[in-house]
């Protein structure tokens, strides 16, 4: 796994994209993380109240666990995980080989919209990071 070296322009671009596609759609919090659980970009007005470091580490680990389970049943990967809470739900999706997008949103936002927006976002983020 290659190290990620992030320049200001890539980070700004990614942040703007996340703001425009997800935050404006009513999502509380978005964390773009790498597979090791490091936070690449954090967006949303709640990020200072949340323990984002722990969320990122656990989301990466959780994703790793389910990927392993997927392999055991003959799947490559489950492309996404969704956990529904009473108030807030969390959506975790791989958007490139190294990057995972964690989206936290309330019941005012529909899962369908989230999935649609993330699919769009994945393309632009991949482009910004210059990956396939």
């Amino acid at each position: 796994m290659a190290d990620l070296v992030l320049t200001a322009s890539v980070l700004e671009e990614t942040k703007t994209q996340i703001e425009n596609t997800l935050i404006k759609a009513g999502v509380n919090t978005v964390l773009l993380i790498d597979e090791a659980g490091n936070i690449v970009v954090a967006c949303g007005h709640k990020i200072n109240d949340l323990d984002t470091t722990s969320i990122a580490a656990l989301a990466a680990a959780n994703f790793g666990v389910t990927s392993q389970i997927a392999k055991l049943i003959g799947e490559d990967d489950f492309a996404l995980l969704f956990h529904k809470g009473k108030k807030d739900s969390i959506h975790v999706a791989r958007i490139s080989t190294d990057l995972i997008l964690v989206t936290i949103f309330g019941d005012n936002v529909s899962l369908g919209l989230i999935r649609l927006r993330i699919a769009q976002l994945a393309k632009t983020i991949e482009k910004a990071f210059g990956q396939k």
């Binding site: 990620l4 992030l6 980070l11 700004e12 090791a36």
Partner: peptide, 15 residues
């Protein structure tokens, strides 16, 4: 995998 954020001048490593 280290994460190097040139914008915030941060290096993140995992030990």
């Amino acid at each position: 995998m280290a994460l190097i954020n040139l914008s915030k001048r941060e290096i993140h490593c995992k030990i």
